[in-house]
């Protein structure tokens, strides 16, 4: 038993219905979850994707989607300059339109957190850092915790961690669970430093989990371990976020809320490039998890090029003519 806080221990016992916490009890629980109807998930995602959202509803959805964007740059070539320009874009996405909402957060590697924190000071835009040896997650636990602590100390509001997919796929669920719990404890250290917790997003990297059943199990495991958000992917593996995957994860947070009363967020990341894709996701959120989740605190898009397409659609609605990306600032 490694869950350190009494509250977590109690919750694990309640949810699992078991007094022991080990690979076997987690396996019994996770494999006892109902299987995902793959054909049904594809069909439902495709059906919801055909909904037509127009005029005032579309304008509302576009603004909401802009406010849900985690504007992301995760390249080896990132510099202080690229991060600063991304932060400027996050503060004022469309310089021609003061009514345009700010994005939710800027997502960077942890060594660039201080740059982003400084550039976003006072704007209300959050700083998210990817940690735990992102994107592969192949490092020892002390390294992953040091990576996370570094970002927390630098002032990151949100931590995007990756799970150990190797351990998950080989059935070592306790290892995955314990890592998430340990990272979450580091996130809690932010209370002493900055007077607030750092929110923890758990990246499942669904492109490597092979089945929707695994996506469902990983979602439940991450929520059990105390993640505030479950996130589809790193964006470095294809396929990244797809509608059916997001559907399965939204069902998981809905069912988790019914079971425990806890509201967990969902973040699809990677591969969402057009406003149309974003609106399809919003329809999915509304029809699966519910209106409660149509909130930047509970649903995010991990993206970079998506923002400009959303802005082009906003301009089109505002001016009545089709817009050109040449008239917008670069997203990265």
């Amino acid at each position: 038993m490694t869950a350190t806080t009494p509250a977590l221990t109690d919750r694990v016992r309640d949810v699992l219905g078991s007094t022991t916490l080990d690979d076997a009890s987690l396996r019994r629980w996770l494999h006892g979850l109902p299987g995902v109807d793959e054909v049904g998930a594809h069909g439902r995602a495709a059906m919801l994707g055909t909904r037509s959202v127009k005029t005032t509803s579309k304008a509302w959805a576009l603004d909401l989607a802009v406010s849900m964007v985690d504007l992301t740059t995760l390249e080896g070539a990132d510099s202080f300059g690229t991060v600063r320009s991304l932060c400027a874009k996050a503060r004022v996405p469309d310089a021609d339109d003061p009514a345009c909402p700010k994005v939710a957060a800027v997502c960077v590697y942890n060594d660039l957190v201080p740059v982003a924190v400084e550039a976003l000071a006072g704007s209300g835009v959050k700083v998210a850092a990817v940690t735990t040896a992102f994107p592969s997650g192949r490092a020892s636990l002390p390294v992953k915790l040091a990576d996370t602590r570094d970002a927390v100390q630098a002032g990151a509001d949100e931590i995007d961690m990756v799970i150990d997919r190797g351990a998950f796929l080989s059935g070592r669920y306790l290892k995955v669970f314990e890592e998430i719990v340990a990272v979450r404890e580091v996130c809690d250290e932010a209370v002493a430093l900055h007077g607030r917790r750092a929110h923890l997003k758990v990246i499942l990297e669904t492109g490597e989990l092979s089945t929707y059943d695994n996506v469902r199990r990983a979602s439940w495991l991450a929520m059990l371990a105390g993640g505030d958000f479950i996130k589809t992917s790193t964006g470095k593996v294809s396929p990244a976020a797809t509608l059916p995957v997001t559907l399965v994860m939204l069902e998981a947070v809905r069912d988790w809320a019914a079971l425990t009363g806890e509201i967990i967020g969902v973040k699809p990341a990677g591969g969402i490039r057009t406003a149309k894709d974003a609106i399809k996701h919003l329809v999915l959120v509304h029809e699966t998890a519910g209106e409660r989740w149509l909130d930047p605190d509970l649903f995010r898009f991990g993206a970079s090029s998506l923002l400009n397409d959303l802005l082009l659609q906003r301009r089109r609605m505002r001016t009545g003519v089709y817009a050109s990306a040449d008239r917008l600032t670069l997203a990265t």
Binding site: G320, V321, Y322, A323, S324, A325, D326, R327
Partner: peptide, 8 residues
């Protein structure tokens, strides 16, 4: 008209 007014 849609092509004439198109910014791109």
């Amino acid at each position: 008209p849609w092509l004439a007014s198109h910014e791109d």
